[in-house]
């Protein structure tokens, strides 16, 4: 870890202005990803701007849905009664993630911006297009068991967002509020927040240099209330998903009126599947319908030698999640 200066911002504008003035600076909230990556010399920042005292807190119901301050901690949000009751998939995605210690420390904003667990990215001895553009991607032929089968490119197959929360947020059409150094806020649907790797895997989100993620808003819908997050991994706890599914259904008169489907652990970004949703809406819930939706969701998958299993695993995970939420 390099030496860095530390600046505790009192106002949002101070934080974002400091960031704009210093391209090498980073915001720090919980620090659970950032400090790891700095210790590994994967990220080197000459300044850390502490945003923890900024007023981006609170969990409250608004006319647009549930608004969650980006500085809320994972554990607090995961256990919040409004979240548990109205957005079970969000609560589950938070409480199935990481360990209790990490959940107590990590912020919602930091979680959404966490970086890949690809072993080649996290070890500077390896080439990596995401870390050092143009150096190559050893994961293509190497150890990619945990990596993506959807949204990949020849430059990168990392599950760029490896976590859980954003999978649930992606299914439930969450909107992110970003604030820049001019104090101006803009809203970006999470489905348009993450970028596919393409030929520029180093560019992971639409966040501008001086922008701070300040809030997440999740629309309150029937499907959100009847939602579920299912996570598959060999270790029961404290492990990233091999595959996961966030689903929400609105069923009326025995017919699916609305369906929300996103997959985790299989895409280079949290993977919303309109193809699966299309197969569900207007049909009566059944195992066959769920299976057809799951097959549609994985139709574009590009599996490789060591992650080919993820096609079937993700399909089965999705079928299971839909069956459980429909039950």
């Amino acid at each position: 870890m390099n030496n860095f200066s530390y600046y505790q911002a009192d106002k949002a504008k101070d934080a974002t202005s400091a960031k704009r003035a210093d391209k090498s600076a980073a915001f720090i909230a919980g620090g659970t990803t950032l400090l790891d990556l700095m210790k590994l010399n994967v990220e080197n920042h000459d300044q850390l701007i502490d945003v923890n005292t900024l007023p981006f807190r609170g969990v409250e119901m608004t006319k647009n849905g549930l608004r969650i301050g980006a500085l809320e901690r994972m554990s607090d949000v995961g256990e919040h009664p409004l979240v548990v009751k109205n957005f079970p998939a969000v609560s589950q995605s938070l409480l199935l993630a990481a360990s209790a210690q990490l959940r107590n420390m990590a912020s919602i904003g930091g979680n959404i911006l966490q970086r890949t667990r690809c072993g080649y990215f996290r070890d500077t001895a390896f080439p990596c297009n995401k870390r050092e553009p143009g150096t190559g991607c050893p994961a293509l032929e190497g150890d990619h068991r945990n990596l993506a089968i959807l949204g990949t490119s020849e430059a990168c197959i990392a599950t760029s967002y490896p976590g859980d929360l954003s999978v649930a947020l992606t299914a439930l059409d969450a909107v992110l509020t970003l604030e820049n150094a001019k104090g101006k806020q803009r809203e970006v649907p999470i489905t348009r927040f993450y970028l596919l790797p393409g030929s520029t895997p180093q560019k992971e989100t639409v966040l501008e240099d001086d922008e701070l993620l300040v809030a997440v808003t999740i629309p309150q819908t029937v499907a959100a209330q009847k939602s579920l997050y299912l996570k598959v991994r060999e270790r029961t706890s404290y492990a990233y998903a091999l595959a996961s599914a966030a689903v929400g259904l609105e069923v009326q008169g025995g017919i699916i009126r609305a369906a929300k489907v996103a997959l985790g652990g299989v895409g280079t970004q949290p993977w919303r599947s309109p193809e699966a949703e299309k197969m569900l809406v207007g049909k009566a819930p059944s195992e066959a319908v769920f299976r057809a939706a799951a097959e549609a969701a994985l139709r574009g998958a590009k599996p490789r030698e060591h992650n080919a299993f993820k096609v079937e695993m993700a399909q089965n995970t999705l079928v299971r999640a839909l069956s459980e939420v429909a039950a």
Partner: peptide
Amino acid sequence: ALMEETHRDASFARYTNADLAGYHIPVNAD
């Protein structure tokens, strides 16, 4: 039996999961 495995990259002869997040040992829930 169920989870411990260190991956050695075939081209680099270097481990790709050399930490306790990547090398899974059982937790209480297991």
